[in-house]
Write a protein that binds this DNA or RNA. Structure first.
Lengths: 150, 150
DNA sequence: TTTAATTCAATTGTTAAAAATTTAATTTTG
DNA sequence: CAAAATTAAATTTTTAACAATTGAATTAAA
């Protein structure tokens, strides 16, 4: 690794990922806007479409987000009538998140969103899978390191 | 590309990058905290250590951030006495950003920060460069698409 | 069983991200 | 030259991210 390269943001891995993340969100924005969702709200819906129901903590484990981020976000999704929040009867510390009829119908309406945007970004499936595997590896490592140092 | 995979966040490229970006920031945080910087503030300093001076727009072009994000961030860096903000005399619409003595000295003090953290994340230089080239390619594509649709 | 430790969510405060609007200055063109 | 268009930065508003704290509930230990 050349010494000099550390001094240009464009050659820093962390910056590239940081900027790519924002650019990808920017690509999603106009599409998601039509459905009244932001990018992290969309991710919450994707998890709920898979699991049908969850808790705040379980959603946080899946998305690597904490309750300080999720609580207000989930309140907005409830406001939009896409989800319901209900305190658990077995354990009153837990808040159970479920889909409304409207939230369930949205899955069908948004079925093609991800596929279309991925196609635009990655071109071929091969390239997509190659990037994904490499990044999943990096995420796993980063998550280990981040958890280790807290 | 298998159809089913679109329905799990973990198999979505955009989520992986989004989560990786946050995890990398989380890894940097304790180190940057010692120098009183947040992650985006650090990136601004990296650019200024290279260019010595800049404008708000030029910084935004480099970091892909707009003035609505940079203006309050730069005010905090000025508050910390790391930079100076001065309206241009040739074109009074422009605000010129420069390093203070304290800001320049910080470069020397933080010289090893990136190198050490990269080493922790990527292990070998080969792996790091491999990920980087692939991601730079993706960032370029994403930026083109995002700019196209606005 | 009482105390201690842990867990879960909410709240508070700070920073960031970005769209939309505003203000001011410069450049273009008619 | 004057009007229109463009450019630059700031401001405002909404949403997000996260640390730290609080409070309530559950679980474990003495």
């Amino acid at each position: 690794m050349k010494e000099r390269e550390e001094y240009k943001v464009e050659d820093m891995l962390c910056f590239t990922i940081y900027a790519t993340s924002r650019e990808l969100t920017r690509i999603y924005r106009p599409t998601l806007e039509k459905f009244g969702l932001t990018y992290p709200q969309y991710l919450v819906m994707v998890v709920l479409w898979e699991t049908r129901e969850s808790t705040v903590t379980a959603l946080g484990d899946r998305l690597l987000l904490d309750s300080g981020t999720l609580t207000p976000l989930l309140k907005r999704l409830q406001e939009a009538e896409l989800i319901v929040r209900k305190r658990s009867v077995e354990d009153e510390r837990k808040v159970e998140i479920g889909l409304t009829e409207k939230g369930a119908i949205l899955q069908e309406q948004m079925k093609h969103v991800s596929v279309e945007i991925f196609a635009e970004i990655c071109g071929t499936a091969e390239k997509y899978m190659q990037s994904l595997e490499q990044l999943k590896n990096l995420l796993e490592k980063a998550n280990e390191i981040a958890r280790r140092s807290e």
